[in-house]
Computed example of a mutant assay.
Amino acid sequence: MTDLTFYTNPMSRGRIVRWMLEETGAPYETQVLDYASTMKQQPYLSINPMGKVPAIRHGERIVTECAAICAYLADAFPEAGLAPPTDDRADYYRWLFYAAGPVEQAVTNKAMGMTPTAEQGRMVGYGSFDRMVDVIEQAVSDREYISGDAFTAADVYVGSALGWGLQFGTLPRRPAFEAYVGRLFARPAYRRGNEKDDALMPKPA
């Protein structure tokens, strides 16, 4: 038995949290939810009233939102070394939440055909899509990992965002992105998590 439960669907951002869980090495139980039924019903709505995955329950604590889950798990399992020392977390927090905010918002808006004008760019957190891309490209160009020389939970989130962007064409293919994602996706924990989620995918009829 374990006190850590992971709520997910293999066709969701739950893959980010699966990777993070595998990096921690902690035992966990997986509950797979269906978009059309169990995800929108009790008892799951008591876990996440938004009716979305992923989420985790750790003892009596519930955490939703991928970036928050990654940060929480890094702190909950410090022996895995997935967060910098508390006095050296400036870049760690900066890029973790840059990916969760400006990157996510800019990619989603563009995919939905919503391009802000120059005037509207003052209102949106990412300014413009091209500016967002240039900033994150620079961040992954001059270092091995997003917050320095060591792999952290921020790399799980940023790497997932960039990896999906390259896979689905929502981000431009730039050498810095491909090199960074390539380093991360070679990690054993990423491969284990991916294999587990792939095994849960619906089988073709």
Rank of each mutant, 00 (worst) to 15 (best):
F129I: 07
T64I: 15
N194Q: 13
A80Y: 09
D198A: 14
R57L: 05
T115E: 13
M50Y: 04
E119D: 14
P175F: 09
A76V: 15
P172V: 15
A90M: 09
I69Q: 02
T115H: 03
A68V: 11
R191W: 02
M201L: 15
G193H: 03
R94S: 12
R94A: 14
G193K: 04
E22C: 06
S147W: 00
C66R: 02
E195Q: 13
C66A: 10
I146E: 05
G159D: 10
G148T: 11
M20H: 09
F168Y: 15
E60V: 00
G193E: 04
A154Y: 08
K203I: 12
A36R: 14
D3K: 06
P188E: 09
R183E: 05
K110V: 11
N109R: 05
E79C: 04
G59L: 08
S37H: 12
A26I: 06
S141P: 00
A90I: 14
Q138W: 10
F77V: 15
V133Q: 02
N194F: 07
E23L: 11
P172F: 13
D198H: 04
Y126L: 01
V53I: 10
T170M: 15
E144A: 15
A161L: 11
R57M: 09
E195S: 12
W95K: 09
G148N: 07
A36D: 12
W95G: 08
G113P: 00
M201V: 13
A176Q: 11
V140E: 05
G148P: 01
G25V: 12
P78D: 05
R192F: 05
N48Y: 06
P49H: 03
L162W: 07
Y7I: 05
